[in-house]
Design a protein around this nucleic acid. Structure first.
Lengths: 153, 153
DNA sequence: TTAAATAGGACCTAGTGGGTCCTCTTTGAA
DNA sequence: TTCAAAGAGGACCCACTAGGTCCTATTTAA
């Protein structure tokens, strides 16, 4: 199904919300509970996503009372690929990736060994060309269509 | 992680092997046990993949003694996207796809609602431009590199 | 000093993909 | 005519891991 993890989905939503609420670079911050309320995502989950994004340098976390999060960069400067990598790890379209030592059990006879890279490059390129600004759109609301309808092939 | 299912991976390997062993359209057939032996993939799994590919019209199954499978089309005429769709279902880069009724719990406030389609289009285009022939290569063996090395970002 | 936040873990749970097995049907060959 | 070899089509089990929750430590403004 080639699916994106839910966490990544949440990340995009949360970052879009940060931008919309003015939590821009050097601007005021937005708390995790507040973002949870605004997005409808459970609070612990929002907190988890923000922590990961913070580690990746995509958002900036300010601790202490009156703390919160804000974007490290404007949405237009954040390629979608970067968010995916931050949450899900490297973008690679194959199952034998996470073997660690890279020893595919069928390595000796695998007919397509070493040929996935153009595929992965193509995917990475496609995801790098799209920024979060493209996904979030110009502040206005998207038309009332469901994901399912949009995405079904 | 954006991972492809293992089954899809197997499908590509198996189809590449079919081509290599001359199980081309209108040609002689190759049995599932034989393919399992040749690819190093467990036999029941190979059989499962072939059944799915057969239903999708990507391979042709001939029943009975001396039966087996052969490609329905040459590899060059099979876009990678078609194999993925056959095994994994529609290509769609978002988690809220399989809700069925399409009612995302955060539907009312989701900031990125309805904006994933350009992303999905880009991915589909990338995967449609690559055929199995590109993956399998011109019969010769790929260099001895592991998937992991090739694919790590 | 206190309360409100983030930071960083540990940990549990459920969904589902991966894999196996069983039975039925088809068909060529003895 | 019979038999064996193969695919067709399910049912089913198991393990992995993503998703989600919670707890504690740390920081900092009021």
């Amino acid at each position: 199904m080639l699916r994106l993890s839910k966490l990544t989905d949440y990340a995009v939503v949360v970052m879009a919300r940060l931008a919309r609420d003015g939590a821009l670079p050097e601007g005021r911050v937005q708390t995790a509970p507040g973002l949870a309320l605004a997005t409808g995502i459970a609070e612990p989950t929002v907190a988890k996503v923000l922590k990961i994004l913070s580690q990746a340098g995509l958002v900036e976390g300010l601790r202490g009372a009156r703390g919160g999060y804000r974007l490290a960069r404007p949405l237009a400067a954040v390629p979608l690929s970067e968010v995916i990598v931050a949450i899900d790890g490297p973008i690679a379209l194959t199952a034998c990736v996470d073997g660690g030592q890279g020893q595919c059990e069928a390595q000796g006879i695998c007919a397509v060994r070493g040929r996935w890279d153009p595929v992965n490059d193509a995917i990475r390129r496609a995801l790098s060309d799209i920024t979060l600004a493209d996904l979030a759109g110009p502040t206005r609301c998207a038309p009332a269509t469901t994901f399912t309808q949009l995405v079904a092939e």
